[in-house]
Every structure is written in structure tokens, then in C-alpha cells.
Design a protein around this nucleic acid. Structure first.
Lengths: 152, 152
DNA sequence: AAATTGTGGTTGCACATGTAACCATCTATT
DNA sequence: AATAGATGGTTACATGTGCAACCACAATTT
């Protein structure tokens, strides 16, 4: 009798535990990608994300960045500071609500962003090729499902 | 004409970027699970992993833990220390190679581990139900593919 | 067998991160 | 219009983490 699907209740095989596997897979991919933009631009993860989000929206506030790509607000605050120091991002005070700062890319920032988009697309493309189109489709559908689950 | 699959080359939509989505999904699941064992046992992530790995293998060295579930060796070192202080883990010097320490669970540790395994299995089961069996199957196959990719 | 090199594990230091407290401003209540 | 509460954003502090240097010991070279 084949008991390969019966779970041993006494021991947890970490390498078969779904949250662990998901975490490992994600971590490996993220690390490989991070390596790319760290080498290229010297950006940290939160900085890359903040930068990419500002680029995506054109103009956005720190709070909105937090909402769109979940990060702690101190992370965003520090990332913005770093990006500002590099002159890739500039702030503009909102005229009607002086608490708000609208963030946008400088001209230099825009040039870098263009490159970043390209690097990201190439990476994604290569990644999809490396696991195969079919499995990539499965992955997309699985991610849809997980995202749906967390919206509910 | 339907251009929904044509990628705008100028802007990167973060929420559609595969590595980002994978990372978010993983992070959400991990956080939800971490919440469980943090509340229950007060364990940090590296501690949980170290503990689970020792439980899985019965006897294992710190180095082997690093190899099996990729963590920096300082993380493991500190986790072992914390687990030892709680008296969930004990060390034994290797008689032939005195650099090696064999780690195993104490009796208390074993009891906790039993509970941990149960909590983990219940969590996994509920997670699979929550996204649906079919999508869970897709996820498993996608993870297989990613893992294969990183072994090569 | 002495010296060099490698390995398991720990520690010091610098840096990243989360929490909470904070400042400035806006909104709502009175 | 004065007060109380909420909100955008920053900062101080405590904790977590990675890197490099380190210690003790083992293996290899001479």
C-alpha cells in the first residue's frame, strides 16, 4: 500500500511545509533580483521599492506608498530620505495640506527609473523562461488565489 | 484590439511584477503563521526554524541546520542559545571531534515540538482550504518548478 | 612533529528594522 | 474660536541581522 501521501503526525518535514517552501522560493528569487539592483544602483530593498513606486505613480505621498506596497512608514521615510540625498527624488509641499509631501522623480531619477524598469522586465522574462512558461502560468494563478484570499 | 497582455515598457506596475507578488504572498503567509507561534511560544522566526529543524532530525549540528534550512550561521548560533536558555534544546559534544555540538530536544522541548507540529499542520491545512484545493495544487507544482530551477 | 590551512561555532561591531513617542498640521466637537 | 482627537511624517531607542574577525580544534602539508 502506498502511504506516500499520509502525513506523519509526529514530525514536520520543513522542506515539505507549504509556508516554508513559499518563503524559500520567494527569498531566493528576491535575493537574486536584489543582487542585480544592489550591484547596479546600490539600492536597498525598501529603497528600490519606494523608488519603483514613485516612478510608477509619477506623484505620490509617503503614506500612499505604504498603502500600495506594504512597508512600515519608517522604512519609507528613510528610503525617501536616501533617495532624496541621491537627487533621484524630490519633495513638494501640498499647498492646501501642509502635512503632505508629494514625491516625484527628478530628471536624473527618471533616467534611472527607465533603466530599472528595463532591468526588472528582463529579469522577470528570464525567470519565467527558466522555470518554463507552463509552470509560470501555474505560479500566476496560484498567486492570484493567495492574493484573493488575503483580500477577503 | 485587446492589448491587455502588451507590457508598457515605460512603467513597471509593481503589483504585477512577479518577484514582488511572490514576495508579498510569501510575506503575508509567513507573517500570519509567525503570529501564531509568536503568540503561542514567543519564538522568533529563526528560533522557530531552528527548533523545527532539530525536532525534525532528532540530532543535528548547527552547521547542518544551516545547510538544511538556509540561514546565516550567526542566526542559528543565537537561536540555539535562546532555545538552550529555555531548556528546549541541549547540546552534546562530539566525542571524536570536539568542535562539533550535537543538538537535540529536551523532554520539555519534545512536548512543545509535538504541539508545534500540530499547529503547523493545522495551519497548512487551513491555508490550503482557504485558497482552495485546486489552486493549492497549482502552488505546489509552481514551487516544485522554482525549486528545480534553483537546484540547477 | 611543526606549521599551515580548513572548519564548527561565537562574538564585536556596524547597520537595518520595528515600536513608540513625538512634532506639526488638519479635522471635528463644543 | 478653543479644545480634543486624528493624520502625515520624523526621530530615539531597543532589538535583529550580516560581516568580519576570532577561538578552539582538526586535517593537511612539509
Amino acid at each position: 500500500m502506498d502511504d506516500s501521501n499520509i502525513k506523519n503526525a509526529d514530525i514536520l518535514a520543513l522542506e515539505k511545509f507549504l509556508p516554508y517552501r513559499l518563503n524559500q522560493a520567494s527569498e531566493k528569487v528576491s535575493q537574486k533580483f536584489a543582487q542585480e539592483y544592489k550591484k547596479r544602483y546600490g539600492l536597498t530593498r525598501p529603497e528600490w521599492r519606494t523608488f519603483a513606486t514613485i516612478g510608477q505613480f509619477g506623484t505620490i505621498t509617503a503614506r500612499e506608498i505604504c498603502n500600495h506596497s506594504p512597508m512600515h512608514k519608517t522604512k519609507v521615510s528613510r528610503a525617501v530620505f536616501a533617495l532624496e540625498k541621491r537627487r533621484w527624488v524630490k519633495r513638494t509641499q501640498d499647498p492646501t495640506d501642509r502635512r503632505l509631501e508629494h514625491l516625484e522623480l527628478t530628471t536624473t531619477g527618471q533616467a534611472t527609473y527607465k533603466d530599472l524598469v528595463n532591468v526588472a522586465n528582463v529579469f522577470e522574462e528570464k525567470f519565467i523562461q527558466s522555470i518554463g512558461d507552463q509552470d509560470a502560468q501555474l505560479l500566476l494563478r496560484a498567486l492570484d488565489a493567495i492574493e484573493r484570499r488575503f483580500e477577503a
